[in-house]
Design a protein around this nucleic acid. Structure first.
Lengths: 232, 232
DNA sequence: AAGGTTGATTGACATTTATCAATCTGCCTT
DNA sequence: AAGGCAGATTGATAAATGTCAATCAACCTT
């Protein structure tokens, strides 16, 4: 029942504007897989064999070195990952694992490269996608290098609040230990950072977070679109 | 004497394979500027007006937040910068300043976007460029999140050594305070990191660095292509 | 309901990194 | 040659962050 996913994949900016036969060429070789949580999908260093599309669930991109681990990003439906490696035909720089039951569509990398060569509209869409990915990593780098851990958490919470439609309370979308790794700190430190933010009206209970006075937190976090705006 | 730069710009992977009239269209509106050191070229947040090409000198890309500064990368001839912002017609995420006397060719962003729409070969070249930029920032992020400051310096020195053709001694290409910012530490800390590396045969004298026993330093630094290989 | 497992939290402590102030050094200018 | 300046280094100290061990809490499973 792979076809069930076609419409929402087609709706992705990466595929929305491409020729019908290009899309068909990509989907012809594609196949569907469903995975339980905690399954390793790809390992950094491996050659790029498939472009991955998450249509359900959630996937964590992480990297390791000398026994240490860190999370680079979390991918949620509907989006692709490891496009850059696929296009350049280069080894993955990140590993990926499911963090919940997930449905993935796998498109053979060679097909992606073929369509990329043949369909200019697809090439342009890839550019837009990669430019956004690039800018998003740059923002993450700025976050890491310019802010300390409490500031990173404060701004993360404000971003989540916005993503939740400025709701006063929302749920963290990932486990705290994963959030800690994403924010570049240990789980212990994240706990303490949450404690520190109580002074600015942040109340947590498990995965649920309430921001009592956003303007107070904003005063501390000093968010800037040049780091915190997802669309930019 | 803008034309003097055309051949080496044309030789860039970004422009090498594009149609003659595409290249001509880009160069028609382009103009040349020469700057002394320490001149601000662009400021983060500004709209993207020109694609910049450095043909001589060196340009530092940096970012600021709340009175703090950090260096994201240094751009050396011959290369472009802020391609992603240009293509997406989005504000710059980084500022740029010259760090030595520099010669820049400025191509109006609108021309770049026009050629991007019209010439599929250019669109594909932009993809390759952006994919590389993206992967390079990912590597930088991994470096920052997975290594401490001494390890970052050790691996940086090994990369420089390789760039210098595995010479036993080489010059640091930037001032130490800039290197410190790039590596995500203070200048004081960089000094101490150099001292720590003396134990592994790293001898410095001003900007010149000698690595007596590379295998010793490698043993400490544990470089990996997935972070330290520039081509990957 | 009991037990087991996993993640979160806390406290004590160690390590890393930053800050501040004081030289030191090399280079430039006059 | 003297002075001045900017960057680099050093030492003392503070702050931030990590580590380790213990405990707690929530959620499974049976």
């Amino acid at each position: 029942m792979l076809e069930r996913d076609f419409p929402e994949i087609r709706a992705l900016p990466l595929f929305a504007g491409i020729a019908a036969d290009s899309f068909e060429a990509l989907m012809r070789g594609a196949y569907l897989q469903t995975f339980p949580p905690q399954i390793d999908l790809i390992r950094e260093g491996d050659p790029s064999d498939f472009l991955h599309v998450v249509t359900e669930g959630a996937v964590e991109m992480f990297a390791s070195w000398s026994g240490r681990d860190t999370v680079i990003q979390t991918v949620r439906p509907v989006s692709t990952f490891i496009l850059a490696a696929t296009i350049r035909d280069a080894p993955y720089l990140m590993s990926a694992r499911t963090i919940s039951r997930s449905r993935l569509v796998l498109i053979p990398s060679q097909d992606v490269r073929d369509v990329f060569e043949a369909d200019p509209a697809f090439a342009r869409a890839v550019v837009m996608d990669l430019a956004q990915c690039y800018r998003s990593v740059v923002k993450h780098t700025k976050d890491l290098k310019l802010r300390n851990s409490i500031e990173r958490l404060a701004n993360y919470l404000l971003r989540q609040r916005k993503a939740a439609g400025d709701a006063a309370a929302f749920q963290l979308p990932v486990e705290k230990r994963r959030l800690a790794a994403f924010l570049g700190m240990t789980p212990e430190n994240l706990s303490r950072a949450f404690r520190s933010l109580e002074a600015y009206g942040v109340v947590t209970d498990g995965a649920s977070v309430r921001i009592n006075d956003p303007s107070d937190l904003v005063g501390f976090a000093r968010p800037t679109p040049l780091i915190d705006d997802g669309d930019l």
